[in-house]
Amino acid sequence: MKKMALALFCIPFFLFGCSGEQLVEVKNTANAEQNQNVEEVIKNSNDVYAGNAIFIDDQLLVAVQAKPWLDYKKSKIEKNLKKQIEEKYPNLEVFVSADYKLYWETQKLLEEEDEKKVSDELEKLKKLAKEET
């Protein structure tokens, strides 16, 4: 019984151990060079442990997850990332969010083949993210 309690107690520490490297996935239909840039920006950010980036038409949606203890300065992280990414892609309309909803949905969109659907979904997510209540 005591051993089991100890094991349960230790599990969270093992889980923390796994997340040393940032997980970054990029969905891009055309340009491989573009992928590299945004991946680098996300990976270089110390406040983020995971991120998804989706290129569609002239838009770029980046959904990231802030590290657990840094949740409180999410809006700052968003702002910083947005600035850095916009520097690299002056022609694209960049949208950055640290919201879990966007991260979850973009995860699903990464596998989506139909471009029309992805584009519609993106519009919907952007609208959602703007809602305050």
Partner: peptide, 17 residues
């Protein structure tokens, strides 16, 4: 919270209610 985020259209800002 996660239930509402994943299965309904709520974001972290709006899921509190």
């Amino acid at each position: 919270t996660y239930f509402y985020i994943i299965f309904f259209d709520f974001t972290e800002t709006t899921v509190g209610n």
